[in-house]
C-alpha cells in the first residue's frame, strides 16, 4: 500500500467539491474503491459505469499523465507519490 494524490477536474471536481485527495492503495482499482467509500454516490454516479464497475465512457484516468488503458488498466500498480487524475469527457483543440 502506497499513498498517491488523486486530482479531479471539471465536472468531477464539481461533484466532489474538492480539487484533490490523498489515497492509500496499491492499484488503480483500489483507488477507485476508496473514492467510492469516501464520496459515495457523488463519486460513483458521476464517474463509474454502474453496469461494468469501470469508468464511464470517455472518462479518463491517468497515472503520471499516462492513460491507464496504455498501462495495466485497473490493475496498474502504483508507486509512492504517484499522481493520478480523473477527467470527464474532454478533448480536442
Amino acid at each position: 500500500m502506497v499513498t498517491v494524490t488523486v486530482k479531479f477536474f471539471a465536472t468531477v471536481r464539481e461533484a466532489l467539491g474538492t480539487r484533490s485527495v490523498q489515497v492509500d492503495a496499491s492499484t488503480v482499482r483500489e483507488v477507485l474503491d476508496r473514492l467510492i467509500e469516501r464520496f459515495g454516490k457523488d463519486f460513483s454516479e458521476t464517474v463509474i459505469d454502474q453496469e461494468t464497475g469501470d469508468l464511464k465512457r470517455f472518462f479518463s484516468c491517468m497515472v503520471n499523465g499516462r492513460r491507464i488503458e496504455l498501462l495495466d488498466r485497473y490493475d496498474t500498480k502504483l508507486k509512492e507519490g504517484d499522481s493520478m487524475a480523473l477527467f470527464p469527457p474532454v478533448g480536442g483543440g
Partner: peptide
C-alpha cells in the same frame, strides 16, 4: 457524454487536460 461537458465549459477546460 461529451455534450454535457461542452455545454458547461466549451473548449476552455481543455487547458487543464
Amino acid at each position: 457524454p461529451f455534450t454535457k461537458e461542452r455545454v458547461k465549459y466549451g473548449t476552455t477546460n481543455l487547458l487543464e487536460l
